[in-house]
Write a protein that binds this DNA or RNA. Sequence first.
DNA 1: TGCCAACTCTAGCATCGCTAGCACTCCTGT
DNA 2: ACAGGAGTGCTAGCGATGCTAGAGTTGGCA
Lengths: 196, 196
Amino acid sequence: MSIQERRERERAEREQLIVTAARALAEAEGWEAVTTRRLAERVEYSQPVLYSHFKGKDAIMAAVAVEGFADLAADLRAARISASDPRHALAEVSAAYADFAERRPALYDAMFSQTVNLPFATPQAPPVLHAAFGELSQALRPHTGDDELGTLTETLWAGLHGLVTLMRGGRLPPEDHERRLALLVNRFSQRSGDPT
Amino acid sequence: MSIQERRERERAEREQLIVTAARALAEAEGWEAVTTRRLAERVEYSQPVLYSHFKGKDAIMAAVAVEGFADLAADLRAARISASDPRHALAEVSAAYADFAERRPALYDAMFSQTVNLPFATPQAPPVLHAAFGELSQALRPHTGDDELGTLTETLWAGLHGLVTLMRGGRLPPEDHERRLALLVNRFSQRSGDPT
DNA sequence: TGCCAACTCTAGCATCGCTAGCACTCCTGT
DNA sequence: ACAGGAGTGCTAGCGATGCTAGAGTTGGCA
């Protein structure tokens, strides 16, 4: 019994080692540099070991992506909490989102650009994913009614995602990033009541 | 002289043949199915011929992308022209953009998702690229001042791009697409003056 | 102590983008 | 008309990719 447990524990540790190594390699040199051979060398095992843990390279990237969502959710939450006024939180959270994408491009790629087969807009989606989405929702709550909060969150998310991906692909001039971000946030802020 | 011209003409025709075949193959089976071997077989030449026309596979994709921008610009223009009221054009053009991405996913990938090394936000960018961007700008013009038109166009574009890419990647539920699109357009419409 | 099961590694497959070098074609000048 | 030569397309192959089959070794159990 105990020996079985030890083996499972060691297996879990090795699996985490693989994910961590993949993430480190991707963040250092980009995903195109993450080959199964290099990854195997990093964790000091042979290639087939990777396939005893994950179905393929995509599954490894998906595991990294889940870690990324946890980090993103934490960043967004920190930005929201530290905001002086709930109405200012939207700008802070949006900026945090953009910063995350800029600071961790490889992680962001795994989460969004790649084809990783994660369940997203369903209850089966990993909890960290709902958490990240929830932070955006909370930041938007003071600015809209409950009935359209979900859809509005999705749309804001799309706007942020578009901004960072187009900029990173060289499709948008980086020097105007702040202005675009401010403009987007402004358009998603409630202005009907008071212009204070 | 004449014979030299004929050769150049034939070369140009063959180059166009390669681009057309690449595009057809990509639209039929996706870019991962477009290998240099299959492409060469389609155009009934050997692989190295491709490299006498293009520096590599990326360059072929870039050529397809330019064609895509021309198509997109045409679609957007048609939507804008056919709009009854200039103030309604924004919704029409936005819907046309989303439709384009949905109807021609492979083309859209070549234009935006892939790393194709095209000059974008510079004067060196292909004219068709400015044309497509200009259509979005024209649709937005009735809704904002000239000083922020450029930045606003970039931001709307990012919003549209985010919507279609996240939806195609399974990150957003398709059934709410129309509502998200309407919401985005609404947020980019001028509402300060009249609620008519 | 001997055996069996589980596990890991070596080696290799099919395919990828890309290229070197040979062979052929076709225009040119005498 | 015909030999020479420049240019062009092909065959074959390189290094690298993701992934897998089968051999070989290790380690716990009777």
